[in-house]
Amino acid sequence: MNILDLLLRLRFFRRFRPNALVITGLAIIIALVMLAILAPYLTPYDPTAEVAQPYIPPFVNPSHPLGTNFLGQDVWARLVYGARNSLMVALLAVAIAAAVGVPLGLLSGYVGGVLDRVLTFLMDSMYAFPGIILAMIISFVLGAGLINVALSLAVIYIPTYFRVVRGTTLTVKEQLYVEAARAAGAPLMTTLRYYVAPNVVPVAVPVLALNFADAIITEAGLSFLGVGLPPTQPDWGVDLSLSRGDIVHGVWWTTFFPGLMIFIATLGFLLLGEGLSEVVRGG
């Protein structure tokens, strides 16, 4: 089943009514992706290089529109390149989590029995535990780095997909067409792939967007705590962590702008997710 096929199966693509939340969310996301892709054209500076005097205030020097930090790095350059790291980590995390969580949920819900009970209990206990703390210890063991942060975030999102997909599978598997497929002698994997999955997977789509939002804000949190991306990387969470000492001296721009970016990025995906789940529910 390819992506296009999946999208066509979504009800809201057949009779798509413009939803303000979805459109706003998508607009923010597209802007962010452009920022990440066009980073080298949007700033002449290397985000990790010390390019000017430290602590130049924003809106004063036209070559450093958002000022510089304590090392004399350009704040705007770090924001723009930070978008790359943030989006990349979130994309990887969500993709891995969905790739593991969705099939597990399908299988568990469809097969039932002991497997289902064990998996559900396991996933529920993981779900009850604070995600960021789980992610912290995983990246403690794996070490800092982009892939490792993505992996640790992926682990905490697996239960989310599992729960949503399993729940829907339980209702879908009682449908007549599934029974018919089974009665006609379709093997387990065929039934799951062609009869159950296409009707279950769309419910996971809003979850993708909501998880993306969570991944961005949690990655920033991990990096802020020093257990996410290494401190040399341009990243919004790392920037906030580096600027902690600035606040006391009244230097606000090194804190304000990176945080604002995290807020905007999270908001974009959150609005998209909320909008999509509204469409799925209402459509």
Binding site: G221, T255, I262
Partner: peptide, 21 residues
């Protein structure tokens, strides 16, 4: 939506700046 999207550490730092500094 705002409470979800505002990073807690960022909010904390901003409050420190306004009410502390």
């Amino acid at each position: 939506v705002a409470t979800y999207a505002i990073p807690v550490f960022w909010l904390g730092l901003i409050l420190q700046l306004i009410f502390g500094v």
